[in-house]
Design a protein around this nucleic acid. Structure first.
Length: 290
DNA sequence: CAAGTGCCTTTATC
DNA sequence: AGATAAAGGCACT
């Protein structure tokens, strides 16, 4: 199947899958292979044509953020030359709508890790606890269900390279499994409320909650602040904060929760309702240009 | 090549 | 409130 993209509403598949928001996509030749819930499929972009196999058109549009009003989003976030430069470089990068369960576990794993290590951990986890699916000449694995992870021992989880995160994954999986937790409910409630609820899961702090809200629940105002975004703010946006505050967070590696909230709120106020989009462009640009 | 640093942080403790 | 330490292990320099 094929979607003919409207040139006035750009989409960039490579940037979308390379920017570090999702960790389980593999490129083979010009096709990207992915698996979402129980479904393995492939997709490629040739100019303005988006081709895919083994997946519904509506799912593709939803998963890749093609229902977002992209021109409006770009207009709203383009506040200055820094963000404009990032947008120009990766124009068409979209915020995905990942599966919330997979996204939650992925970002608990992602704390204090680099992207290649995160990919490795999640690949191990899926190989060990997911189901193998053969599609188009390749084996891929489903993301383990809450039940599978809830029933795994912490030691088994740790063997996947999760380290001290294993106990958080185990506890969170048990909470989700035992309460038959439904993430869909979070879509309907406001950003702040949904964030509060996510913070109840072990291993989920402000940053992880923001990532899950942005990358799986469509809360596009979420503005996750990690070390890269902190660097971006120190470099380009320091003038929007008191000198004393900038000096303080420059001197140390970790942000306290109140410091996180200040940077987070700045992002949301400065970039507006689609701050999450701005975050991902700035994040990707800052990482790539090194 | 060894050793050090950094990694899309959270939690526990004081 | 805010500072500090601890918690895998791997990739990169």
């Amino acid at each position: 199947m094929k979607i003919r993209l409207n040139p006035s509403c750009p989409f960039n598949l490579n940037a979308t899958l390379c920017c570090g928001q999702a960790f389980r996509w593999n490129k083979q030749g010009e096709w990207w292979y992915g698996i979402v819930r129980e479904n393995a499929f492939k997709i490629r972009q040739i100019g303005n044509d988006l081709e895919f196999e083994n997946v519904e058109m509506d799912f593709v549009k939803s998963y890749f953020g093609l229902y977002d009003d992209f021109p409006k989003i770009l207009l709203q976030i383009s506040e200055d030359k820094h963000i404009k430069r990032a947008v120009e470089t990766f124009k068409g990068l979209r915020i995905l709508r990942q599966d919330p369960w997979e996204c939650l576990i992925s970002y608990i794993c992602a704390t204090y890790k680099n992207i290649s290590a995160i990919k490795q951990m999640l690949s191990n986890l899926c190989k060990k606890f997911g189901d193998r699916i053969y599609f188009d000449g390749y084996d891929s694995y489903t993301f383990p269900t809450p039940e599978r992870l809830a029933k795994a021992t912490t030691e088994e989880l740790a063997k996947c390279g999760l380290g001290y995160r294993a106990k958080y994954i185990s506890k969170t999986a048990k909470m989700v499994y035992e309460n038959r937790y439904e993430f869909e409910g979070l879509r309907k409630i406001a950003y702040e409320k949904a964030k509060e609820e996510l913070l109840n899961f072990p291993g989920v702090g402000l940053k992880v909650a923001d990532c899950v809200l942005l990358f799986s629940l469509g809360k596009l105002q979420a503005f996750p602040v990690d070390v890269w975004i902190k660097r971006v703010i120190l470099k380009y946006y320091a003038s929007y904060f008191p000198n004393e505050f900038i000096r303080k967070i420059s001197g140390k590696k970790l942000l306290t929760s109140s410091e996180y909230k200040k940077l987070n709120l700045f992002g949301q106020r400065y970039f507006g309702d689609y701050a999450g989009y701005a975050q991902e462009y700035l994040y990707h640009y800052e990482r790539i240009k090194r």
